[in-house]
Design a protein around this nucleic acid. Structure first.
Length: 954
RNA sequence: GCCCGGGUGGUGGAAUGGUAGACACGCAGGACUUAAAAUCCUGUGGCCAGUAAUGGCCGUGCGGGUUCGAGUCCCGCUCCGGGCACCA
């Protein structure tokens, strides 16, 4: 009987399905274990071989934990709101709800094809009203709370109102947009609009002015992703940054906790570093500069208050609210021109551009509070509105960017730090002795910083301040395909929450998904929905992608609950995610937001833990190989001018092959390995028959089999191939569908091969080259059960010592490696085990049965088949995972490498249990060693019992 | 530009600071076969010497350092991949 994955896999899939093997109960006497995958966005191109990498790993781990006696929650769902579905709708007219549902069925079919052990009864879809009801509900909680910095926790907004009524802002320590100062009487005198504005300053979900990319030509707001090189990616139209009043979430209130509590988590150090850097905590001073001739003060944040005597100019972000006030009539034209330029620039451009600085003088001056010197105020794009206060004091002597700016605009430089005592110290390092700095002169930098902050506080011109790079999350999207905000505005524009019993606030049906004139969201088209009695109206923006994905793991715990997002019982049982598997691309976005939401829900008593994810594993991206075939035309008339065409491996041959490539690029990739003339083309088509009818087009002519268009006699064509590695995407013709691989090799083989490719955390290109090795392994295993005549040859014989050692070596290795997520080495261990058993012709049940269980998490279908062949009737998925017995693993003999000065010179097999002295004596008398130490002095002998011997000779 | 990773044979990769290249792919030679496929066996980092057994030297992107010993730790570079706040 031959191993036939197709029939085996079909059979057991149905068997598992019929018996609901993967269904999980919220009540169990077993310990719980929650394994979560980052749920996919169901895109139109379907699942590719990169998606399942993490899913297979988490599935193996889930199955492993289940077999070890845990009640394992392993769910799956879809992150189903998003931009691509909406873009697709605009292009094709197909409603996002439909295309999303279609894509989901396709994803489901593809996932089902891989033998995952998901409990599908818990599936969630973020675009489902029964789900987004709770996304909206959480938003309303954020809207209804403020962050009490003194208590380190979120509190209901009513408590804040109570505080204002009794003492105004006195004694209040709260996360806010700007510090306000008013008394109880002031509060009581405020209009409802004024009160609402004040509360917005404290709410965790609040509205503020932020910028969006606007494309006039397309009549739509664009995502960063849709803007390339300052123009829209679609159509190449001009774009500009437009200010809009948008919802934001005050994640900055949680910055300190997000940073501190990160340390306790089992995340990779790289991930922790990325998140800490993103939070970007820095300590410094917030201080106010007087402005010459203005009553306003200029508020800046600096980590280097000690350098104030070197501050020779101030820089404001171009969007800073004081810019218009500070611009003098003489500078007006220049400033306006600069502002127009800045609206075309992305933040990335503004940060990245360091060689060519730009800026403009406002014509006004600030006053240095310590020496009363006038300091010119400039604006420049390298200062960002949302970081710090959107304004800096520039100290060219101590900051590279400020220096370049001073250089370019001829601004003075005052040296204030003597670093001669610290050779090799960079300009930014906080070391050196202060000079030219009045009362700071002679002090070391750290002391000077300290003293300066105290001075600033004494003078009442500022205070010590902790600043974070982390910015509040912009939460509005001018899109259709997202959660509507459960917010209505009254006549005065005051935002009110929709009543809880009115949730979910469903997305109205629309035919046209384009925004309404100006920057109004598509939802503005649903006038009946937007407009309410008495001049009230609904919010027309929708929530961003991260809304639904910030809490979905909680919903799986109790997915059908229509009274709460999850019941207290379910939350108390499952608590948090024990293992989370997903890509690093979510390091700062999704992970940060969901940690923030979770902490908020914890503060308001809705979840039992302050952190959502205990352990995080990041799978590397599976990249595609972009294979290009170049056809070059070489002019023979002496000129060495090349022209060439380029085609990607997976490109449909019917599509015209074009892309002229730069000569330099071609020249960099070695020499052509074959000529392409008519015969060469034949040869090429033999190698790549799919190009039989392709038309090869280069700048100067076209080629097709049997034809020779536009080519001059005497012209030679050369071709060669090269490979690049990059993201798998439709546009690169390198997407590989797992279904095709499963069709050919089976799901078990696919699972093992993806694991065998390399370490889970590493990015690697997909290549099916090695899959035969895995397929061979599976057949070899199969053939331990069946002989070549299809006869079952499993015997009841007792295993010998060696066979037990082979088995238990595998058990040990696989168990260790599963725990550390080293699945590629698990597969090697299986191969070694099967190879060893084969060489001993071992088909003993006492060996094969534990081996089958060991393999079950990796190749569940095959394991189930073998398990039943061995006479079992329950599922192998529920069997006990084998445990190693150290008694079988004892080594009698150890191979000691013997090194001289660190170089291996001999390998001697010695009985285990020799002590260091015995080993030393024995080794010194080895002939192979004598040869090396003859006439020399043995200075030192390093003996590591059980490992090695190293002699140091001179 | 900034942040985070990574670089080991022809290829994917293995290696608690302790025998570099496990396990595979590929390739070469052989067995079986009319033949091919499949399967099995043997070899396979490079260079040098030797008929051979074998022996020697070099070798983990580049340059330095720590150590008895470095792919692994430290410093400086370089190339590649990912992210940079409205793709998800």
């Amino acid at each position: 009987m031959e191993y036939n994955p197709r029939s085996i896999e079909k059979k057991w899939k149905k068997w598992w399905d019929d018996r609901q093997v993967y269904k999980v109960d919220n009540k169990s006497t077993k310990p719980k274990y929650y394994v979560l995958d980052m749920f996919p966005y169901p895109s139109g191109s379907g699942l590719h071989v990169g998606h399942p990498l993490g899913y297979i790993a988490s599935d193996i781990y889930s199955r492993y934990k289940r077999m070890q006696g845990f009640n394992v929650l392993h769910p799956m769902g879809y992150d189903a709101f998003g931009l691509p579905a909406e873009q697709y709708a605009i292009q094709t007219g197909i409603h996002p709800a439909k295309s999303t549902a279609d894509n989901i069925s396709r994803y489901r079919a593809q996932l089902d094809n891989l033998g995952f052990s998901y409990d599908w009864s818990r599936e969630v879809r973020t675009c489902d009203p029964s789900y987004y009801k709770w996304t909206q509900w959480i938003f309303l909680q954020l809207f209804g709370h403020w962050y009490d910095t003194a208590a380190g926790s979120s509190k209901p907004i009513q408590q804040l109102i109570f505080h204002f009524e009794h003492s105004g802002t006195a004694g209040l320590r709260a996360a806010c947009s700007e510090s306000l100062d008013f008394g109880a009487e002031d509060w009581k005198a405020m209009s409802s609009k004024a009160k609402s504005d004040v509360l917005m300053n404290y709410r965790l979900a609040y509205r503020k002015m932020t910028y969006v990319w606007w494309c006039e030509e397309l009549g739509t707001v664009l995502a960063n992703d849709e803007v390339k090189d300052g123009v829209s990616e679609r159509g190449g139209y001009p774009v500009e940054r437009k200010p809009m009043l948008q919802w934001s979430l005050r994640i900055t209130a949680y910055a300190e906790r997000l940073l501190n509590e990160l340390q306790e988590l089992n995340f990779s150090e790289a991930m922790k570093k990325t998140q800490s850097n993103w939070i970007g905590k820095s300590v410094g001073a917030q201080l106010f500069f007087d402005l010459d001739g203005h009553s306003d003060k200029l508020e800046i944040f600096t980590t280097r208050p000690d350098t104030i005597f070197g501050a020779t100019f101030m820089v404001l972000a171009p969007e800073h609210e004081l810019v218009s006030k500070l611009t003098t009539p003489a500078q007006k034209a220049a400033i306006e021109k600069y502002l127009a330029y800045v609206t075309t620039r992305s933040e990335r451009d503004r940060m990245a551009e360091t060689k060519e600085v730009s800026g403009e003088f406002t014509g006004s001056y600030a006053v240095n509070p310590f020496n009363q010197q006038k300091i010119p105020v400039w604006i420049a794009e390298y200062v960002l509105k949302d970081y710090g206060t959107g304004a800096i004091m520039a100290v060219p002597a101590d900051d590279e960017r400020d220096m370049r700016f001073a250089d370019k605009f001829g601004l003075p430089v005052v040296h204030i730090i003597d670093k001669s005592m610290y050779p090799g110290a960079t300009i930014e390092e906080k070391v050196g002795k202060m000079i030219n700095s009045d009362f700071l002169d002679g002090m070391e930098v750290p002391d000077a910083i300290d003293l300066m902050i105290r001075r600033i506080e004494d003078m009442g011109i500022g205070f010590r301040k902790v600043n974070y790079k982390l910015r509040d999350a912009i939460y509005s999207r001018q899109r259709y395909w997202g959660e509507p905000f459960p917010i209505v505005y009254d006549k005065e524009g005051v935002a009110h929450p929709v009543k809880e019993q009115e949730l979910p606030l469903e997305l109205p049906e629309l035919e046209d998904f384009k925004p309404v004139a100006g920057t109004k969201s598509p939802l503005a088209r649903a006038e009946n929905w937007v407009n309410l009695p008495e001049g009230w109206h609904r919010e027309t923006d929708t929530m961003p992608g991260f809304a639904g994905s910030s809490w979905y793991f909680l919903r799986y715990m109790d997915a059908d609950n229509d009274r709460e997002f999850a019941s207290k019982e379910a939350l108390d049982y499952w608590r948090d995610v024990d293992l989370y598997v997903g890509g690093t691309e979510h390091a700062v976005g999704h992970l940060m937001y969901s940690r923030f939401w979770h902490k908020f829900l914890f503060d308001i008593g809705k979840v039992p833990t302050p952190e959502p994810y205990k352990r995080l594993i990041n799978q590397g991206m599976i990249q595609g190989v972009i294979e290009n075939i170049f056809l070059l035309k070489e002019k023979v008339d002496g000129e060495s001018k090349f022209v060439c065409a380029r085609i990607a491996k997976k490109m449909n041959p019917q599509e015209v092959v074009r892309i002229p490539v730069l000569v330099d690029y071609v020249a960099n990739y070695g020499s052509p390995d074959s000529y392409l003339n008519q015969a060469g083309l034949e040869q090429f088509i033999k190698w790549r028959p799919e190009f039989e009818n392709a038309l090869f087009e280069s700048e100067s002519g076209c080629w097709q089999k049997g034809l020779q268009k536009n080519s001059q006699p005497g012209t030679e064509f050369k071709f060669y191939t090269l490979s690049e590695v990059g993201k798998m995407s439709k546009s690169k013709y390198n997407v590989i569908n797992p279904d095709d691989v499963v069709e050919k090799y089976g799901a078990d083989c696919f699972r093992l091969y993806e694991m065998f490719l390399g370490p889970i955390e590493q990015a690697k290109p997909w290549d099916t080259k090695g899959i035969d090795g895995v397929a061979k392994f599976l057949r070899k295993l199969w053939n331990l059960f069946y002989d070549e005549n299809g006869k079952l040859i499993v015997s009841e014989q007792a295993p010998d010592k060696e066979e037990l050692k082979i088995l238990h070596t595998a058990i040990r290795k696989v168990t260790e490696d599963v725990e550390r997520f080293s699945f590629n080495t698990c597969v090697s261990a299986f191969m070694i085990c099967v190879n060893d058993l084969r060489s001993k012709n071992c088909s003993k049940k006492a060996i094969l049965e534990p081996l089958t269980k060991l393999l079950a998490p990796f190749a569940p279908h095959l394991a189930e088949e073998l398990w039943h062949l061995l006479g079992n009737e329950t599922s192998v998925c529920l069997a006990d995972f084998p445990v190693q017995n150290d008694a079988y693993l004892v080594q009698d003999v150890i191979a000691y490498p013997v090194s001289i000065n660190g170089k291996k010179r001999d390998l001697v097999e010695l009985p285990a249990g020799m002590d260091a002295a015995q080993l030393e004596e024995l080794v010194l008398n080895l002939p192979s060693v004598k040869k090396w130490i003859e006439g020399k002095q043995v200075q030192k002998v390093i003996v590591v019992p059980g490992r090695l011997v190293n002699l140091v000779v001179v």
